[in-house]
């Protein structure tokens, strides 16, 4: 193994310009993919925390009275997916409003009746998507005693449409960049193979197996993929800290952005993918050459 690694490094050094271009191309592709992953990871986390892990507020209509609470709770439980229910009576809601508004509650004393409805705050047992919350909200709205359900459908719906559009664009761009990287890797291996054609021919003459001949090429592809992946993530890390320190220095007083760097599993997936990319490029190339 050390001999093969040494040989691979020698081969990379002897073709350093070509290998450098390949590693740069892979790192650029991985950078694009990583940027999208960084965006998706952070957006998903913010969305989830904004939605408190899947919460909704059920507002009751005039037909509802607190003595119907037990029956309504049963109805809600029967719908499934509901984890916790907290009843907020109209008086409790008014008291909460007064507390939240602090000293600006004088106008409330002019009201003859409490205009706020009875409400129920519910959390979902296994929140996984916006669609799941929306489906449950629709079923709750169908109940006789319910006037409406608030789950952030206004802004969240619009944001998610935009998010999904961005996600699709992300998938398309990532696929395109990965294909380009795959093509470049495959071509580098092809060129390396042709450059070493005499060597391969001599190896065959002295009894080298196909595995012995191919292994350095695979090692080269794998190393290119791994180094390209590491470089891509490193560039992203530098960009991330540069951007973050720029924001905190210039806009820190006005903007609070909780942007986190890629999680370790995400970095692992990226490095594995780039390594696989290197291997696969090599595989395709050798398969075609040695056909």
């Amino acid at each position: 193994m050390p001999r093969i690694l040494k040989k691979t490094l020698t081969d990379i050094r002897s073709n350093r310009f070509l290998n450098l271009i390949t590693i740069m191309t892979i790192s650029l592709s991985i950078l694009v993919v990583s940027i999208f992953m960084l965006f998706f990871e952070n957006t998903s986390r913010i969305l989830e925390s904004r939605n408190h892990g899947g919460r909704a507020m059920v507002y009751f209509n005039a037909q509802f009275s607190p003595n119907m609470l037990a029956g309504v709770k049963d109805q809600l439980t029967a719908l499934g997916s509901v984890d916790k229910m907290t009843f907020i009576s109209k008086d409790a809601a008014l008291a909460r409003l007064e507390k939240e508004m602090g000293g600006k509650t004088r106008f409330l004393s002019t009201l003859k009746d409490n205009p706020l409805p009875h409400a129920m705050e519910i959390s979902l047992a296994s929140f996984s998507s916006f669609d799941q919350v929306r489906d449950l909200a629709r079923r709750i709205e169908a109940l006789d005693t319910v006037a409406s359900v608030e789950y952030g459908q206004g802004w969240l719906g619009r944001f998610l449409k935009l998010f999904n559009l961005f996600k699709m664009t992300g998938y398309a761009m990532c696929s395109l960049f990965l294909l380009i990287a795959l093509f470049i890797t495959a071509n580098t291996v092809r060129l390396a193979f042709y450059a070493r054609r005499t060597e391969v021919e001599i190896m065959r003459l002295v009894g080298a197996t196909e595995g012995f001949i191919k292994t350095p090429f695979y090692m080269e592809g794998i190393l290119q993929g791994f180094l390209g992946g590491c470089l891509g993530v490193l560039i992203l890390l530098i960009g991330y800290y540069t951007l973050l320190s720029g924001i905190s220095q210039n806009l820190g007083a006005y903007v609070y952005l909780d942007i986190r760097f890629l999680s370790f599993p995400a970095i692992g997936i990226i490095l594995f993918s780039s390594t696989f990319l290197g291997w696969f490029g090599c595989f395709l190339s050798l398969k075609q050459i040695l056909k």
Binding site: R204, L205, V206, F212
Partner: peptide, 13 residues
């Protein structure tokens, strides 16, 4: 073709 390398090891060329 898989056994060919082993045959070639018997030759010096």
């Amino acid at each position: 073709s898989g056994k060919l390398p082993f045959l070639r090891r018997r030759f010096g060329m």
